[in-house]
């Protein structure tokens, strides 16, 4: 390519129609490269070293693949993945069921619907940490609402966060409360996309309610349910704020999710190299799930064009 002869020539070259797209995208890509991509590559490098982020003066020590080998053979890491999986499965399942039922409730227009909808939708817009604090107050053993309510009926003190099972349920409850409205929104979008004439035709055929649901409604909400499932799985997999604030991973390490564990390794023990390696393993999982999500989005949009 010949070098531009003058400033104006260069400017002309730069602003040519075929460079419009790249030029407009450049600032965004540059920002992400500087603030996100570069640090990530850097931590990729760090994942092969032993390094302490608190001692910037001490140079990193080369460990090769040892960080990864350690992680894959470490039972603690495996246990944290299991904790996370239990919370993901429990919470996403509850979200799908509750969200679906809420969507059926709100599918029809009725007086004041808009205002009542707001009450139900509000939780998902709240701060994750604020919801953690909420439920910490609710579960508080002596004056918390839920322990007192249970005590009214049983007469015995009820300490929620004392056993692993109860603590896990407590987290699932808080997370599902927050995110069921998300599923509701998606299912509602599916329900209203069903063409009315199909129901009218079913009316004429005197199809049963179950049959109407299975053959007309469900095919229209299936793809959105799948999207909701994937999206919530990705997000719940990352769950940090709620267990961090609510249980701090306890009792013991029974509710320590992989994100909370990562936080401890990185910022309590300051094993920055090891944390970087674990971060990469987690990141890989998220990238796979995100690709699945986008794939599902694309097949849904090509479905609706056909």
């Amino acid at each position: 390519m010949p070098a531009p002869r003058s400033a104006r020539g260069f400017l002309g070259w730069l602003l040519a129609p075929e460079r419009r797209g790249p030029l407009l995208i450049a600032p965004a890509i540059a920002t992400l490269v500087i603030v996100n991509i570069f640090p990530l590559l850097w931590s990729y490098g760090l994942s092969f070293f032993s390094y302490n982020a608190k001692k910037i003066g001490v140079p990193p020590r080369w460990r090769g693949l040892d960080n990864y080998v350690d992680l894959f053979t470490d039972e603690d890491v495996w246990g944290r993945f299991q904790n996370t999986a239990v919370i993901v499965i429990g919470s996403v399942a509850v979200q799908l069921v509750v969200g679906f039922l809420l969507a059926l409730l709100f599918a029809r227009e009725f007086p004041l619907r808009r205002y009542l909808l707001m009450l139900v939708l509000a939780p998902m817009m709240l701060s994750l940490s604020a919801v953690g604090v909420f439920f910490k107050l609710f579960y508080e053993p002596t004056f918390g609402f839920i322990p007192r309510l249970v005590q009214t009926f049983t007469g015995e003190p009820f300490v929620i966060l004392s056993t692993p099972v109860k603590a896990t349920i407590a987290i699932v409850f808080a997370d599902a409360w927050m995110w069921s409205p998300f599923v509701m929104l998606l299912v509602l979008a599916g329900l209203v996309s069903v063409p009315k004439y199909l129901y009218e035709a079913a009316e004429i055929d005197r199809a049963s309610a179950w049959r109407r649901f299975r053959t007309i409604t469900f095919p229209y909400i299936r793809s959105l349910l799948l999207l909701a499932l994937l999206f919530r799985t990705i997000e719940t997999f990352k769950i940090f704020d709620v267990p961090y604030v609510l249980t701090e991973g306890g009792p013991g390490t029974s509710t320590e999710t992989i994100s909370v564990y990562l936080f401890r390794v990185a910022f309590n023990y300051f094993q920055t190299g090891r944390a970087s390696a674990l971060g990469y393993i987690v990141l890989f999982g998220v990238i796979v799930l995100t690709s699945l999500y986008l794939y599902a989005i694309q097949s849904r949009s090509s479905e609706s064009i056909e």
Binding site: N36, P39, I234, K238, L262, A266, T272, S276, V282, V286
Partner: peptide, 10 residues
């Protein structure tokens, strides 16, 4: 979509 806790380490 990246977990914030992963991004924050580096």
């Amino acid at each position: 979509m990246m977990p914030p806790i992963v991004a924050i380490i580096p």
